Amino acid sequence: MHSIHLKNIRVFTNHGCLTEEEKIGSDYLVNLRIEANLSPAAKSDSLNDTVDYVHLNTIVIEEMQKRSKLLEQVGQRIINRVLRELDKVQFVEVSVSKINPPIGGDVAEVIVTMTERRE
């Protein structure tokens, strides 16, 4: 199995449980890793034989724009879409990071990481 990584996709949006988070919004970073058999693409040099990382990025951006209270819900939505829309993907790992979370301390970011394997 091979992998494709999208690192530090920066998105400004308004997730969170607090009313202020909904109104003000904040910065998030998303890291996405998928596993798939990339050998056909290595031989053919054809986009049709790989997992298009533009499609992966589009999924992340679109799902991040839908408001949720919890990062867990956003992460699961990203996983669900990747597995639903991209048949070649066998495994997905997504990390959603809230930068400078409002938790009353000096915390750089809170990260939720979720994984799922195609059955």
Rank of each mutant, 00 (worst) to 15 (best):
M1G: 14
H2Q: 13
S3Q: 02
S3A: 06
S3T: 04
I4M: 04
L6F: 05
L6P: 01
K7N: 13
K7Q: 10
K7R: 14
N8K: 15
N8I: 01
I9T: 05
I9E: 00
I9W: 00
R10E: 11
R10H: 10
V11C: 11
F12T: 02
F12Q: 03
T13Q: 07
N14C: 06
N14W: 04
G16I: 12
G16W: 12
C17N: 14
C17E: 12
C17W: 14
C17S: 07
L18I: 13
T19M: 12
E22Y: 13
E22D: 09
K23G: 08
K23H: 09
K23R: 15
I24D: 02
G25N: 02
S26T: 14
D27A: 15
Y28V: 08
Y28M: 09
Y28P: 00
L29N: 05
N31S: 02
N31H: 04
L32T: 03
L32G: 02
L32S: 02
R33H: 09
I34N: 00
E35T: 02
N37E: 14
N37P: 07
L38D: 02
L38V: 05
L38F: 12
L38A: 05
L38P: 04
P40A: 08
P40E: 05
P40Q: 12
A42K: 14
S46R: 03
N48M: 09
N48H: 05
D49R: 03
D49N: 01
D49A: 03
T50R: 00
T50A: 06
V51M: 01
Y53C: 05
L56Q: 03
N57L: 13
N57G: 13
N57Q: 15
T58K: 15
V60N: 00
I61T: 08
I61F: 07
E62Y: 04
E63N: 00
E63S: 02
K66R: 06
K66V: 12
R67K: 05
R67H: 06
K69W: 07
K69Y: 08
K69L: 15
K69I: 06
K69A: 14
L70I: 10
L71A: 08
L71E: 01
E72V: 14
E72F: 13
Q73V: 10
V74K: 01
V74D: 01
Q76N: 10
R77C: 09
I78E: 06
I79Q: 04
N80A: 09
N80Q: 12
N80I: 11
V82C: 07
L83W: 11
E85M: 08
L86Y: 04
D87I: 04
D87Y: 02
K88Q: 10
K88T: 08
V89M: 09
Q90M: 09
E93L: 08
E93C: 09
V94I: 13
V94S: 11
V94Q: 06
V94H: 06
S95F: 09
S95T: 01
V96A: 11
S97D: 04
K98C: 05
N100M: 13
P101S: 08
P101R: 03
P102Q: 14
P102L: 06
I103G: 05
I103N: 10
G104Y: 13
G105V: 08
D106E: 07
D106Y: 12
V107K: 14
E109P: 01
V110R: 12
V112N: 05
T113D: 03
M114W: 02
R117E: 07
R117W: 04
E119C: 14
E119V: 14
E119P: 15
